[in-house]
Amino acid sequence: MRYTSFTPYDFVLLAQGLGVSLALFLATSLIGLVIGTIWAVIRFYRVPVLTPFIAFLAELLKNSPVLVQLFLVFFGLPALLKINVTPVEAAVITLSGNTAAFIYVIAVSAIESIGRDQIESARVFGLSRWQVLHHIIAPQAMAFAVGPLTGLLVNQLQVTSLISVIGVVDLTKIGNILNLRTLKPFIVWTIVGGLYYVTAKLVALGGAMLEKRLRAHTAWKGL
């Protein structure tokens, strides 16, 4: 039996899909934030071998399609290493890595925005590299990075939609299912698009509010 019309249960489906998208978005953003920041710190310490390797890896991840990265992890890794990779695992690995690459770029430019003279003068006062990073760079870099970070997150939220292609039942996959069942593409994709739009706007709003607070905070500290 085919249910071609919409049912109240479809709202539950959509909510579930949105939940999966959001959960993966939040998890991979967090992991990406941590990894990307670690990469930037490695660069700050100028660790040999690792620094150029990370720079190359970040360029590669930034300049190739996320879809191909997903395929490489989901289809490629199991074939090469004879391991089992579930769609969700592949999604987490790929999105985290991709986000990390962009976070790394933002973090590096945030650190560079602070200026060598400030860092050097702090070093002259006898602060260790870690103390400089912790007390001088981190607070300022954070305020600088919130703007670009918000833009990145809005973008990464949209990127999560690609994991539907490898079978993760996210919001887009639910859209696919409903589209095939109801054969009402305009309605289905308008609703799905609308949900993404509202979520993106909420992320942007959150970023703007955070930026305002951080800027106020740094301004107050500067006085």
């Binding site: 809005v154 949209q158 990127v159 690609l162 887009t172 859209g175 696919n176 739009y197």
Partner: peptide
């Protein structure tokens, strides 16, 4: 700018 491209494409 705020809706994933794949959703636009399917639309």
């Amino acid at each position: 700018r705020n809706i994933p491209f794949i959703v636009q494409l399917f639309f």
